[in-house]
């Protein structure tokens, strides 16, 4: 079956096994194809379960928002996806995560390569205490790129992508820590994008920023749709509605985070199937 526009529109293209259905409201971001597949994931910290048996498929090229109250395991899920959980002492993962069909916990997986393919943006902007240029250049060099011209081109492209080029082109060699919070966060995104990842994980990337910078970063994230698969944790439901194609709601049940509902973002927010979702969304409206 080929994906012609009318077939996508009327829904007959979607295979039966695909549980989410087409995006009825709004333009489809792309031809959805599962890129990240999480099966029965249960991360735990020193025996304390953070998430209980989570399974979901994340489509390539789309923006998927993870929402829910604090402490319900959203960040745990996010950092499982690039195995950043390896760095947390006492953290164990049960279940399986496949990216592009490959088990990321397989024995022959190169973790550094995985993290290059799966970039991550943190809640608090964390540029290194280096110059703006070196912040982008150093990871590129460490991943084996050494030609000056190529490096410069990549740096410029990454900075243009995040709309920072005009602001910093004259001071690439000044310390990154002199940038404003919003600029720092965009630099962090540029740093990740420069490595040409296929997936970008974002952990509340706007919550530490002022409203103006937050808006700029949000527009930037929306513009990444189609080129990158974005998984974003956010507490801001309005933001999720504005930028996300899909949304997953997590809730704490029996002291462990559980996936309550996973659906198209609009449907989840406007016509939730679960009472918990309904209450959560309503609470935010009120």
């Amino acid at each position: 079956m080929t994906a012609t526009p009318d077939r996508i529109a009327d829904g007959s293209y979607w295979p039966q096994s695909y549980t989410l259905g087409p995006i009825m409201s709004g333009e489809p971001c792309c031809v959805p194809k599962t890129l990240i597949s999480v099966e029965g994931l249960s991360p735990s910290y020193s025996g304390k379960t953070a998430l209980e048996n989570v399974s979901l498929d994340i489509d390539g090229g789309c923006i998927t928002a993870l929402i829910g109250p604090s402490g319900c395991g959203k960040t745990s899920l996010l950092s499982s996806l690039n195995r950043l959980t390896d760095l947390i002492p006492g953290c164990r993962l049960a279940g399986r995560i496949r990216i592009d069909g490959e088990d990321i916990h397989g024995v022959d997986v190169n973790v550094q390569g995985l993290r290059r393919r799966v970039g991550m943006i943190f809640q608090r902007p964390n540029p290194f205490p280096l110059s703006i240029r070196r912040n982008i250049e150093m990871p590129l060099r460490e991943h084996g790129m050494s030609r000056r011209s190529e490096l410069d081109e990549r740096i410029e492209r990454a900075l243009r992508d995040v709309g920072l080029w005009a602001e910093v082109r004259d001071r690439l060699d000044s310390p990154a820590l002199t940038l404003s919070g919003g600029q720092q966060q965009r630099l962090c995104i540029a740093r990740a994008v420069a490595l040409e990842p296929s997936i970008l994980l974002m952990d509340e990337p706007c919550s530490a920023l002022d409203p103006l910078s937050s808006g700029i970063v949000e527009d930037l994230i929306a513009s990444l749709r189609g080129r990158y698969t974005v998984v974003i944790v956010t507490h801001n439901l309005a933001q999720a509605r504005r930028i996300a194609n899909y949304a997953a709601l997590f809730w704490v049940q029996n002291r462990a985070g559980t996936l309550i509902e996973f659906d198209q973002c609009r449907r989840l927010l406007e016509a939730p199937r679960s009472d918990i979702t309904a209450a959560y969304v309503r609470g935010h409206r009120g």
């Binding site: 950043l84 760095l87 550094q112 993290r115 943190f122 964390n126 290194f128 990871p139 990740a192």
Partner: peptide, 16 residues
């Protein structure tokens, strides 16, 4: 720790 996580998220080696 922000910088350690940031470096790991970029796939940098421990030595780097």
């Amino acid at each position: 720790n922000d910088w350690r996580f940031g470096a790991a998220a970029l796939g940098l080696s421990r030595a780097a």
